[in-house]
Amino acid sequence: MDTASSSGAVALANPWAVVPPLGNLDAYITAVNRLPMLTQEEEQRFARELRDDDNLEAAGKLVLSHLRLVVSTSRQYLGYGLPHADLIQEGNVGLMKAVKRFNPDQGVRLVSYALHWIKAEIHEYILKNWRLVKVATTKAQRKLFFNLRSMKQGFKAEDAEADITHRDVLTDAQIDVVATQLNVKPEEVREMETRLSGGDVLLDPTPADSDGEQAFGPIAYLSDAHHEPTAMIESAQRDALATEGIATALKSLDERSRRIVTERWLNVNDDGSGGMTLHELAAEYGVSAERIRQIEVAAMKKMKAALAEYA
């Protein structure tokens, strides 16, 4: 088996040989999580090679570097009782469709573009293989149904932690919480709660009750936004910039500029107080306040360039 190149890209005649088959799910996930991520420059280069030269090896490298995104996204839909391996496989189909359609000149990373296609394939698979109760016929009702179903599980977990016997029927206080969070009336929550206690009937629209909403998929409201891969990546990037990135940028400054920026912007309280003023720094260095301001502006520009390079 070939190994990753020094640039971090995977160089394989057969890119798929680097991961085991989905039959061994644990081994597959472990192998996928060890695959190197592509830099933005590598991603752009491979995408152009695929688009301009129909280079399938470049397509394989793009797919391989984003398999972990499929694994992460598929975990959001394990509550349907469908095999995890099947969810991953359908997500991989969506990833390959995204790679095929990806335009490197649009100014977005493949991770953001591919997420839509991955979810679309998983959604389609679930809708074809799972039946829900038909308790919601409109788009708003479906949104309420799926969110209510999820929130009831949360209430059940809270009751268990507090050693409270959970009841299937929501309390008035819980209904008010649901209504507030979902921006609906308490009466609508109670009505949906009543429907939930009914029986299982078909949820998917049929030609007989066609109302123009057959294409709407309530599954769009099921994923947990807090664990959405793109949001998690962006959060990690922000945390890195706020710690290592700032420290790296400060190191690019001379001692005086670094102290001015630190005293002016970093040594402050949450209410904005605590930092030194331009006049205080000017008196300390024996220069004018305008000169301190000029040094500060130049230092901030240099730090911005350093942060852009770090990112």
Rank of each mutant, 00 (worst) to 15 (best):
M1C: 08
D2A: 08
T3P: 03
A4F: 09
G8H: 05
L12F: 07
L12P: 00
V18H: 02
P21N: 08
L25Q: 10
A31G: 05
R34W: 00
L35F: 06
P36Q: 02
T39S: 15
L50T: 04
L50V: 12
L50M: 13
N55H: 05
L56H: 11
K61V: 08
L64R: 00
L67I: 03
R68E: 03
V71N: 01
S74C: 07
R75H: 15
Y77T: 12
L82Y: 02
A85E: 14
L87A: 00
I88Q: 00
Q89E: 12
E90C: 08
N92C: 05
V93N: 03
A98M: 02
R101H: 04
N103F: 03
L110V: 03
V111S: 11
V111C: 04
H116P: 00
I118T: 05
I118M: 02
H123T: 10
L127E: 15
N129R: 09
R131T: 14
L132I: 05
L132C: 11
L132G: 05
K134N: 14
A136V: 09
A136F: 09
K139H: 04
K139Q: 14
K139I: 15
Q141D: 15
F145P: 01
F146I: 08
N147W: 06
Q153S: 08
Q153K: 11
F155Y: 07
K156H: 06
A157N: 05
D159S: 11
D159E: 10
A160K: 11
A162D: 10
I164Y: 06
I164E: 12
H166Q: 10
H166M: 02
T171D: 06
P186E: 02
V189W: 06
R190M: 11
E193L: 13
T194M: 10
L196A: 00
S197G: 01
G198H: 06
V201A: 08
L202E: 14
L203N: 07
L203Y: 07
D204F: 05
A208R: 13
D209W: 14
D209P: 06
S210C: 15
D211H: 12
E213S: 12
A215N: 05
P218H: 03
I219G: 12
A220Q: 14
D224W: 09
D224F: 13
H226Y: 15
M232E: 15
I233R: 07
Q237P: 00
D239F: 12
A240N: 14
E244P: 01
G245Q: 03
G245V: 02
I246F: 10
A249P: 06
S252P: 01
D254G: 15
D254H: 11
S257R: 14
R259W: 08
R259S: 10
E263H: 10
N267I: 10
V268H: 02
N269C: 01
D270M: 07
D271Y: 03
D271H: 04
G272L: 10
G274W: 10
M276T: 04
M276C: 03
H279I: 13
A282D: 07
Y285L: 14
G286A: 09
S288F: 05
E290M: 07
R291E: 10
V297F: 07
K302D: 06
K304Y: 13
A305H: 15
A308P: 01
Y310I: 14
Y310F: 15
Y310W: 15
